[in-house]
Design a protein around this nucleic acid. Structure first.
Lengths: 211, 211
DNA sequence: GTATGTGAACCACTTCACAGCA
DNA sequence: TGCTGTGAAGTGGTTCACATAC
């Protein structure tokens, strides 16, 4: 159980969780690495190796107990508990994030919403009062959110990220189209659909007629 | 110019484009791999190696001409032209995608919107009439969209993806939380903020107090 | 003098293949 | 017998370091 687990491995664990959750809901007791791999487009060996970083969760000749493995993965990823998040940027994108129903069922709750635009401040969106970005630091002392979501324009994103880091946030989900700088103890993941599209067009650029 | 360019390389090109676009707007003529790397959190050697797959765009002793390199990258990625996309799923998430202002400036246009829900069909959202999923195949013959965006619930996502593939779509941006199966000639990229969050909590799970 | 382009060396992740256990 | 767990082998990507060009 070495201390150096590749980040790619950690990135795969949530997809295992997702697939196992489906299996559990279907009432499946056991699954083997072959079947799980088939569903996810991952080789069976990959799955077994990934899991072996954390322990021995399977039974030879049978496979993995779905419920047991799911619990272990929850534990490993730290998603047995609820996580509080603050959102910065309550424009069109920010509102969509606030309204997104996919976070809550997985234990991620948005507990604060902030914006620079004084027009938005004071407004109530999805049950949350939008606060001024200026009060972020003091509000954060109450909220104690460990996660931040950034949904501001590129121009102000780095500044907002600095404020979140300053306020003690340890992980950031960044929707702004910038390569942000954060201290080494802070995690950041970018969500940028345009980048995804731009890399896919490379592979299909010869095919199909232009409009 | 080998035929086997690593996918990771292709995935980085759009971030180079993004950074170079900013530099161009600032009126910068030249940039070297050191500076560009600093902005992006990528080593200078990485950038040079990545670019070397496609040609020699730099000048020794000087660096890269910003405008020239940007044009080359646009060409490589196939983003000199406009791309048409169809959206399937006009729920809360789909509406947010339709309203998202980040696609159009990069040349990605949503030209069709579809839904299973007959209540949504016929409605006009962001200037587009929502059509029934049933007419997707025939509509696609007119629209000739090469890209598809999937914003339907997990339960129907694979089915929708199959239909898009059937209709000739060659790349899919998938917002549904599933590991979809597509033929080898079809590209797919997933956007799932929950997965991003769940992998970050691994690293921060010891820190901070629970609510 | 300075920064690119690139083989070679290095490192990290994936896959293999089989011993070991249920 | 069947499938896990895992060292060892293999593969692919990154970094080095320097010849090359401006």
């Amino acid at each position: 159980m070495a201390l150096e687990i590749p980040e790619v491995v950690i990135d795969r664990l949530p997809i295992y969780v997702r697939a196992l959750t489906v299996l559990e809901r279907q009432g499946r007791d056991v699954v083997n690495s072959q079947e799980l791999g088939g569903k996810l487009g991952v080789t069976p060996a990959q799955i077994r190796k990934d899991l072996s970083y954390f322990g021995r969760f399977g039974k030879q000749g049978r496979g993995y107990n779905v419920k047991r493995l799911l619990e272990e993965l929850h534990q490993i990823l730290g998603i047995t508990r609820e996580w509080s998040m603050v959102l910065v940027g309550v424009g069109q994108l920010g509102r969509a994030i606030l309204g997104y129903g996919g976070f809550a069922p997985q234990g991620f709750r948005i507990v604060g919403a902030f914006d620079v635009d004084s027009a938005a401040v004071g407004e109530r969106v999805d049950g949350l009062e939008v606060k001024s970005i200026d009060v972020l630091p003091e509000e954060m002392r109450q909220l104690r959110a460990q996660l931040g979501i950034v949904a501001v324009p590129a121009a102000s994103a780095q500044q907002v990220i600095d404020m979140l880091v300053e306020s003690g946030v340890k992980a950031i989900l960044n929707y702004a189209p910038i390569a942000a700088h954060v201290p080494p103890d802070v995690r950041i993941k970018d969500i940028d659909p345009v980048l995804a599209l731009q890399s896919m067009t490379f592979y299909i650029k010869e095919s199909g007629a232009a409009p």
